Amino acid sequence: MWQVIIVDDESIIRKGLKQYIEECSLPFRVIGLARNAAEAMELMEQTAPHVLFVDINMPDVNGLDLLRLVKCRFERIVAVMISGYDHFDYARQALQLQAFDYMLKPVPKSDLKRLLLRLDQHLRSIYGDDQVEVVKTKGQAVQGEALIGGSDGSVVLCKVTAYIENYYYDPDMNVSRVAAMFHMNHTYLSKRMKQELGATFLEYLTELRISKAKEILDNSMHNIKIGDLAVKVGYTNQYYFSRLFKNRVGMSPLEYKNRDA
C-alpha cells in the first residue's frame, strides 16, 4: 500500500480528505495527519511515506516552503498541493518544486479518484509493482471501455471525453476549441458524441459540470457559496449556473444544498 500523510491546518479538511482516500478503494493508506509543517516533518521522519497531500495556506511555514524542505530531505516523496485559492503563482511555484499535481478545494470525489489512479501509476513507475498490492477497482475497469469499441472515431472520442473530464472547470471550454485540439470539425465532433454517447458536446459538458456541483453540495464538509461553486465547475455567471442546475435537478443549488437541513 502507498503510505500517505495529509497536512492541513483545518481538522475538517484533514479528516474529510482521509475519508475520501479510504473510500476510493485504491492502494493508498493514510498513515498520518498533520496540522502544520513541524508535525509533518516529524511524521515523515518516523514513517517514510510515499505521498504527501499538503495545503498551501498554512500559518508559520506554508505548504510551498514545506515542500522545499521535503525535497531536500526526502527526495522520493511525491507531493500533491492543495489550495482554496486559484492563484496562478501558487500553481507555478508548485510545478517548479516538482509537485505531482495542484488541486483546488473543494475537490469532488470523482476528481480525487482520477488523481489517485494517476498517482498509483506514477508510483509504480518509481517503485515497481512489487511494493503494492494490485487492486483493480471499478473505476479502473471501466475507464474508457464505453468508448473504445474498435473504430478510430471511438478512440478519438475517448481522448476527447478524457480531456473534458480533466478540464471541465475551464470557463473557456467549448466545442470549437476542443474539436480544433483534436483536429476535428466541431459539427462532426458534436454529432459523433450524440451518436455514441447520446449527448452533444454541450449536453455532455453541462451534465458533467452539474454532477460535479452535486458531488460538492452532497458533502457537508464543503460549506461553499453558490457563486464560488459556479466558478469551481466552470461558470462565470452564478445566475446562469443556478438556472442550468434547476432545469436539470429540479431545484436550485441552494435548495439542493439545504434539502436535508
Score class of each variant (00 low, 15 high):
Met1Asn: 07
Ile5Gly: 03
Glu10Lys: 14
Ile12Val: 10
Ile13Val: 15
Lys15Trp: 12
Lys18Cys: 12
Gln19Trp: 04
Tyr20Ile: 02
Ile21Glu: 04
Glu22Asn: 10
Cys24Met: 13
Ser25Gly: 04
Arg35Ala: 11
Ala37Cys: 08
Glu39Asp: 01
Ala40Ser: 08
Met41Phe: 11
Glu45Cys: 12
Glu45Leu: 05
Thr47Trp: 14
Ala48Asn: 04
His50Phe: 12
Phe53Met: 04
Val54Lys: 03
Asn62Ala: 03
Asn62Thr: 08
Leu64Asp: 04
Asp65Arg: 15
Arg68Gln: 11
Arg68Ser: 13
Lys71Tyr: 01
Arg73Phe: 00
Arg76His: 11
Arg76Asn: 08
Ile82Lys: 13
Ser83Leu: 02
Gly84His: 10
Tyr85Val: 03
Asp86Gln: 15
Asp86Ile: 09
Phe88Arg: 14
Tyr90Thr: 10
Ala91Asn: 13
Arg92Glu: 10
Leu95Gln: 02
Leu97Tyr: 02
Ala99Val: 00
Tyr102Glu: 00
Lys105Thr: 05
Pro106His: 06
Pro108Val: 07
Asp111Ile: 12
Arg118Lys: 11
Arg118Ala: 04
Leu119Gln: 05
Asp120Met: 12
Asp120Asn: 15
Gln121Asp: 06
His122Ile: 04
Arg124Trp: 09
Arg124Met: 10
Ile126Asp: 05
Ile126Met: 09
Asp129Asn: 10
Asp129Leu: 15
Asp130Lys: 12
Val132Cys: 10
Val135Tyr: 05
Lys136Arg: 15
Lys136Met: 07
Ala141Ile: 05
Gln143Asn: 09
Gly144Trp: 15
Ala146Leu: 14
Ala146Trp: 14
Ile148Asp: 05
Ile148His: 07
Gly150Thr: 01
Ser154Tyr: 15
Val156His: 06
Ala162Asp: 08
Tyr167Ala: 05
Asp172Leu: 12
Met173Trp: 09
Met173His: 13
Val175Glu: 14
Ser176Arg: 09
Val178Tyr: 09
Ala180Arg: 14
Met181Ile: 04
His183Lys: 12
Met184Leu: 14
Leu189Phe: 15
Ser190Lys: 13
Ser190Tyr: 10
Gln195Asp: 02
Gln195Arg: 14
Ala199Asp: 03
Ala199Met: 07
Leu202Cys: 04
Glu203Phe: 04
Leu205Tyr: 08
Leu208Lys: 07
Arg209Asn: 01
Ile210His: 07
Lys212Val: 03
Ala213Gly: 03
Ala213Lys: 12
Lys214Cys: 10
Lys214Tyr: 07
Glu215Thr: 09
Asp218Gln: 13
Asn223Ile: 00
Gly227Cys: 06
Ala230Tyr: 14
Val231Pro: 00
Val231Thr: 07
Gly234Met: 11
Gly234Gln: 07
Tyr235Thr: 05
Gln238Arg: 15
Gln238Thr: 11
Gln238Ile: 06
Ser242Tyr: 13
Arg243Met: 10
Asn247His: 11
Arg248Gly: 02
Arg248Phe: 04
Val249Lys: 09
Met251Gly: 00
Pro253Thr: 01
Glu255Met: 05
Asn258Trp: 02
Asp260Ile: 08
